[in-house]
Amino acid sequence: MLIWAGMRGAVTLAAAQTLPAQGVPHRNLLIFIAFAVAAGSLLIQGGTIGWFVKLLKPAVADPSEEFEERTKMMDVLRTASEKVISERGAEGHFDKATRMAVIDAQRNALLDARDDGTFDAEVLGSALTVLDADQIAITLRGGPDS
């Protein structure tokens, strides 16, 4: 689809325009042919792009599958955080160091899932972005645990 929607003949036309005015036989004819090819390509391919997209039928994301994938990812994040909390004996007490350790464990779990190909790249990217934002917010708040 990218090729079909590309710049058909634009480079050829630009190259033809750079031909020196003297010393090139039939320069005007070459420029006209390059222009005709570019215009023809534009009209033919531009006029049929809608048909071509319908023919390819690009995949549409299924909301139920995305919801299921996000639910699985939340389970992975919850498991990672519960492990850190139980190891630190921090039930009910979340100091800055514990929160940062939870974020690190969650990030590592997501990166492992990425390496395994468990989740979609877009879903993983958004989850990692949220973790980064949480880490920055905790760091900027400062406090006694800084």
Rank of each mutant, 00 (worst) to 15 (best):
L140A: 00
T139N: 07
P25G: 01
Q106V: 12
T48Q: 08
T12V: 06
A105K: 05
L30I: 02
L140H: 07
W4C: 06
P58Y: 06
G6S: 14
L140V: 11
P63G: 04
V60G: 06
G46P: 06
V37S: 14
K57C: 01
G142F: 06
A10G: 06
I85L: 05
V84E: 13
A5F: 12
K54N: 12
F94I: 03
S41I: 03
Q22D: 02
K72T: 05
A80L: 07
R99E: 13
A127Q: 11
P25V: 02
F119Y: 13
L131T: 05
T118P: 11
G23C: 01
A34N: 03
S41M: 08
A59F: 15
D145A: 15
L19H: 06
L140S: 12
E122N: 13
E69H: 00
L43I: 13
L30K: 09
W51V: 11
A15V: 13
L30V: 00
F32L: 02
K57N: 07
T118S: 08
A36V: 04
I103A: 15
A121V: 05
A137N: 10
R78D: 09
F32R: 12
D116V: 02
A38K: 09
E82F: 12
R70Q: 10
L128Y: 13
G125H: 10
K72Y: 09
L110K: 03
E68M: 07
L30Y: 01
V37K: 14
E69K: 03
I49N: 11
G50Y: 08
M73S: 03
L13K: 04
N108A: 15
L55G: 14
D115K: 07
G50A: 12
A101V: 08
L55S: 10
E65L: 05
V24Q: 02
